Amino acid sequence: MTDPLLVADLSESQLLSRIFPLLPHGQATIVGPGDDAAVVRAPDGRFVVSTDVLVENHHFRRAWSSGYDVGWRAAMQNLADCAAMGARTTSLVVALVIPPSLEVEWVTDLARGLADACALHGAAVVGGDLSGGENVVVAVTVHGDLEGRGPVLRSGARPGDVLAHAGVLGRSAAGLALLEADRSAVSPGLVESFLRPAPPLDSGVDAAVAGATAMLDVSDGLLRDAGRIAAASGVVLDLEDPYVVLAGDVAALQPACEELGTDPLSWLLTGGEDHGMLATFPEGVQLPQGFRAIGRVKGTVVETSDRQTWTGSIPESPMTVMVCGAAPTVDGPGWDHFAG
C-alpha cells in the first residue's frame, strides 16, 4: 500500500495547482485566482464584506470532520453572514494554515467542500493565502451584492414588530453533543447538522425584499443573538412558548435528548451554528416562505442617568430577551468564543 501524499511532499505551487481547478469561478468574477489580487464586479456600487475563522480543536476536530466537512462549514458560516445583511454572496477569499504532516487529499477535500457550498449559491472562491502551521486554520472573507437594496441591520427592530426565524434551531448543538459523547449513531441527521449545516440562505434576501426591519444569522444561540438585535435596536424581545412555535425542532431533538438526558430548551435557546435567519418584520407584513413567527418586539429601552427602564407592557426588571414574558429558564445565554 502506497503511503499517502503529504503537504510536506509538495511545493506551495504544486499544492495550489491541485486546489485551483476545484474552485468555482462565479458570474461576478473578472479576475480569479493566480494574480496578486482578484477582481470582482460590484454593480450596486457597494459591497458587503465579512470574515470568520475555523480553528482546529476549537471549532472542529479532524477525528470527527473530513476536509470536505470543514470546507463546507467554513463557506456556509460566511455565506450566512452575507445573507443576513440581505445580500447575495459574490465571492470568497480563503486563507489556509496547514501542518506539513497533513495529507494532501484532506486539503483537496476541503477545497471540494468549499466549492460545493459556494457553487450551490452562485458564489466564487477567487483567491486567498496558504501558510504552514501546527494546526489547521481556515479564515474566510466573504463579499456580497445588495442588488440596490439597503442593508438589513441589527438596529432596526421596533415595538410591535414580529420576530421570525427561518431554518432550524438546536440541531448543530445536539450533533456536537452526540459527537462529544461518542453517540453519533443515535441521530446521524443531527450530527450532519453540525458537520455540514445547511442554512436557508435565500431567506435572507427574501426577508430584505419583504421589508425586514432587523436581521442576523443565529450562529451563537437564539438567546444570545436575539439579545444582539435587542441591544442594537434598543428594544426587548419576547419569545413565545418554544415547545409550540419550535415544535418541529423539539421533535427532531428528541432522540438525542433521550440518549443524553438533555432538556431540548437548552439546545433550542443556546445552541449555535445552525445559521438560520432571525429577523423582525412590521406587524401585518406577510412573512416570506420559510419564516415562522416566534415572538414579538414588546417595548423600547429608555436610558436614564442611573438605570434602564422600559416602555411597553413588560416587567419592572429589565431583560433584553424574555420567554413568555419571563426570564429564560436555561443555563447560559449561548456560545462565547472565550467563555465557552
Results as ranks from 00 to 15, higher is better:
residue 299 G to N: 11
residue 319 M to G: 02
residue 189 G to Y: 01
residue 8 A to N: 12
residue 186 V to M: 04
residue 212 A to K: 15
residue 60 F to W: 08
residue 223 L to N: 11
residue 115 A to E: 04
residue 120 L to C: 13
residue 141 T to P: 00
residue 205 V to C: 14
residue 259 E to R: 14
residue 24 P to L: 02
residue 339 A to D: 13
residue 110 L to D: 01
residue 118 C to L: 07
residue 57 N to D: 14
residue 336 D to T: 07
residue 161 D to P: 02
residue 87 A to T: 03
residue 301 V to R: 12
residue 251 A to P: 00
residue 61 R to E: 09
residue 116 D to H: 15
residue 234 G to E: 11
residue 330 V to S: 07
residue 11 S to I: 08
residue 165 H to C: 11
residue 78 N to V: 06
residue 140 V to Q: 06
residue 237 L to H: 08
residue 111 A to G: 01
residue 8 A to K: 15
residue 133 G to D: 00
residue 65 S to Y: 05
residue 119 A to C: 03
residue 197 P to Q: 12
residue 235 V to Y: 07
residue 51 T to D: 14
residue 184 S to P: 01
residue 186 V to G: 07
residue 159 P to E: 03
residue 86 G to H: 10
residue 338 F to P: 00
residue 144 G to A: 10
residue 173 A to L: 07
residue 282 P to G: 06
residue 36 D to A: 15
residue 112 R to I: 08
residue 65 S to R: 07
residue 110 L to S: 05
residue 217 D to C: 13
residue 325 G to M: 04
residue 317 S to I: 02
residue 289 Q to G: 05
residue 17 S to M: 06
residue 174 A to D: 12
residue 213 T to A: 15
residue 77 Q to W: 05
residue 36 D to V: 12
residue 139 A to Y: 04
residue 177 A to K: 09
residue 313 S to W: 01
residue 160 G to F: 09
residue 195 L to T: 13
residue 262 T to K: 15
residue 187 S to I: 03
residue 119 A to E: 07
residue 333 P to Y: 00
residue 21 P to G: 09
residue 45 G to Q: 10
residue 294 I to E: 06
residue 104 V to G: 02
residue 71 G to R: 09
residue 286 Q to T: 14
residue 281 F to M: 10
residue 264 P to K: 11
residue 336 D to I: 06
residue 34 G to D: 05
residue 303 E to S: 07
residue 178 L to Y: 07
residue 338 F to L: 07
residue 216 L to M: 09
residue 272 G to Q: 09
residue 182 D to W: 06
residue 101 S to N: 09
residue 220 D to V: 03
residue 79 L to G: 02
residue 136 V to H: 06
residue 59 H to W: 06
residue 324 C to A: 02
residue 114 L to P: 05
residue 178 L to A: 06
residue 268 L to Y: 05
residue 274 D to Q: 04
residue 142 V to F: 10
residue 127 G to N: 06
residue 322 M to W: 01
residue 111 A to Y: 01
residue 180 E to V: 11
residue 142 V to S: 15
residue 130 L to W: 13
residue 12 E to H: 09
residue 61 R to P: 00
residue 22 L to H: 03
residue 23 L to K: 05
residue 246 L to D: 07
residue 245 V to T: 15
residue 12 E to G: 00
